[in-house]
Design a protein around this nucleic acid. Sequence first.
RNA 1: CGGGGUGUAGCGCAGCCCGGUUAGCGCAUCUGGUUUGGGACCAGAGGGUCGCAGGUUCGAAUCCUGCCACCCCGACCA
Length: 491
Amino acid sequence: MAKFLTNKEENYSQWYNDLVTKADLAENSAVRGCMVIKPYGYAIWEKIQAELDRMFKATGHVNAYFPLFIPKSFFSREAAHVEGFAKECAVVTHYRLKNDEDGKGVIVDPAAKLEEELIIRPTSETIIWNSYKNWIQSYRDLPILINQWANVVRWEMRTRLFLRTAEFLWQEGHTAHATREEAVQETEKMINVYSDFAENYMALPVIKGCKSENERFAGAIDTYAIEALMQDGKALQAGTSHFLGQNFARAFDVQFTDKTGKLDYVWATSWGLSTRMIGALIMAHSDNKGLVLPPRLAPVQVVIVPIFKNAGQLESISEVAGNIKKELEGSGISVKYDDRDNNTPGWKFADYELKGVPVRIAIGPRDLENGSVEIARRDTLTKETISVGSVLPHVTSLLGDIQKNIYDKALQFRNEHTFYVDTWDEFIKKLDEPGGFIMAHWDGTTETEEKIKEETKATIRVIPFDSPMEAGKCVYSGKPSERRVLFARSY
RNA sequence: CGGGGUGUAGCGCAGCCCGGUUAGCGCAUCUGGUUUGGGACCAGAGGGUCGCAGGUUCGAAUCCUGCCACCCCGACCA
């Protein structure tokens, strides 16, 4: 397993620090568990945003923005929803401060108490459906296919950078439909968009499936999720798509007149994907030298490092490098030319490996003479020398190779860590060593699910869509089961 | 909120058990020079209320008491 995952190795803090830190301002508990996303980490998020946004628009969605504050009364309209989130909400009770009378700083002005508290959104279903009420009268107003890029706050007891922070960035889609079928279709469509994104952009193989009742989103009829396996054998929920039925329409009284003139409640879906994905990239692909970014999400795809002894040499190299940069950029490849003279080439090599830049080109005096460049790939750490003229076709195909290779590696890892078990003994053994995904029969009861969780900390991640029907016996209770489900310890 | 651990320079740490020079090391920073094909080297410099408050003592980073913060493990969860 990569060193960084142990969290204690000397390099860990150094390179992780390039991406993110715990909030520097965390002098007190108010911002405990929040993160500052540093420029390089944010650049990765911007790539994720750009690709997802493109995919959302291609499937007919538009962006909008709703308020951060949700009146408490909105929040409590849907019973299951409030129960699911109540324990982790930040609540605004006042709107003003004043100078403390003893002259030491400021205090909350008791006169500025809000009549109704405001909840800082942990998710936006309630405030959005409160708006939809006014937007929808007829079937002609449907469907509404809206996405929002936003921050949300969930007051977690324990946080972990990127994977679980008190405040995180995400996108949340909220759609409204005239029929159940259409809403179900939307739910499926979006989980497919997510798995497409995970596999083709993040190079992260995922299992698509349905959550058990126990793990379902608070207020949903059905929750679909994609689950990925991290290098430490734990599962990570990478995206969710919920079929909300008419629950929120009922809670907010959103009815429409259908073609036959009959009144009915609107059907809803919601779906989300967060900055946790950056954590997924780190946990799934990194090695001992640092981050390994899939080319399609790398802020810098190619870095050019000159090797020079004096200004004259640098000038000649810069000319060659400049041409290569222009040529690659002309083909839509992002290139950084690092001609700083305050670090040695060796230092730069190590630094860009730490940052996960997929391709590195080194040009030195030797290359000038031979009309060549040295080209290195991050995923395999191998190097070769090619002619200047062949850089563009070479790099183009190399980026494709790397993207595929990172995915294949992750897939192979997952295959080697997926176990079909039929006995409780085996279940426990495989879960502990080596850990990973366990495909096992389950009797379908919440009771069994919870007992398994209690005894092993493993939960049902999903009931995979492609898990075939096959008669079997529950691995825990021995009662009959009709298909295998995916168990794992998770983040 | 329970169990464990840690607070010493921007970062990482040693020193504490057994109190006693001017609190030290690595990285980073700054200056000058030599370097540059895998994290360069030499010389010099700057940077500290030793988490906070009290106590013991001639003397406290070190011992005692209280408090605070952070980390790890649980309960909670995307």
